[in-house]
Design a protein around this nucleic acid. Structure first.
Lengths: 131, 131
DNA sequence: CCTTGACTTCAAGTCAACTTGAAGTTGTAG
DNA sequence: CTACAACTTCAAGTTGACTTGAAGTCAAGG
């Protein structure tokens, strides 16, 4: 039982079958081999989907993930488009992390202070400039 | 000139007028006073919008932001719903920050290694368990 | 043979957060 | 007075990431 049905992949990954079909439709997953019209997946897609879900939770769009996967390891071990995207995303992630920290601090201040208006709390936290 | 037109608010905040009308429609902004049918805003909305944009960039949905603003400072200085939402969001933010850090590390590894397949890179980075 | 469950395709629906377009109103500048 | 920009409402369109529904196919069990 080396090949998996769409249902098995769905169960293993926690995705819905509709999502898997959708991924194939938009070219995120390579078109699966068909047996009597039904999809058969090689186990490696489980890992791909794992990474994809991970990337998605980290804020990548499906479009970016597709580029990430297509650009990675084709021809040269590390091509330029992948590198550019990765570096851009790195900067985005840094911004995201900073904003998240900032909002976190703001909420904590809000939880701990007696402000009547949220604006007063948040504005009082120094963040937009630097840490 | 203490009250602002929708155009002025838009210019000051960087939002489109359509967005401001939309915010009013969904109850995120209180319905502005009308003069001959046109909206007039008190300057305080600039701060509100500032905070709202900030919260949005930090990952809050408009729905959450509305709750955050409505629940804050009404009746008791710090009511329970606000507190619950804030604490839940705090946990979400922590998760987000961790995932972002993790993806960041994964990308860096990807940039620095010679892997042919992205999966190999990302999977090699210890993250899903703990840091 | 018939049912059942897992699958297929294709079209349309959903949600958030807006934007766009049409058609009309208001206030000011020339 | 006329033009024009800035506003109004209301309906419909957009994007991303899917989901839902209809109608049909296929293999296995009773």
């Amino acid at each position: 039982m080396s090949e998996l049905t769409i249902g098995q992949v769905a169960r293993e990954t926690g995705l819905r079958t509709s999502a898997l079909r959708y991924y194939e439709e938009i070219g995120l997953l390579p078109a699966a081999r068909r047996v009597n019209g039904r999809r058969r997946y090689e186990p490696v897609v489980l890992r791909m989907l794992e990474v994809m879900q991970f990337a998605q939770r980290a804020g990548f769009t499906l479009n970016e993930i597709r580029t990430l996967f297509h650009g990675f390891g084709t021809e040269t071990p590390m091509n330029e488009r992948w590198q550019a995207l990765a570096e851009a995303k790195l900067r985005e992630l840094d911004e995201l992390i900073e904003r998240a920290h900032c909002m976190r601090r703001a909420i904590e201040v809000g939880l701990g202070c007696g402000c009547v208006r949220l604006e007063d709390c948040v504005i009082g936290v120094p963040c937009d400039s630097e840490d």
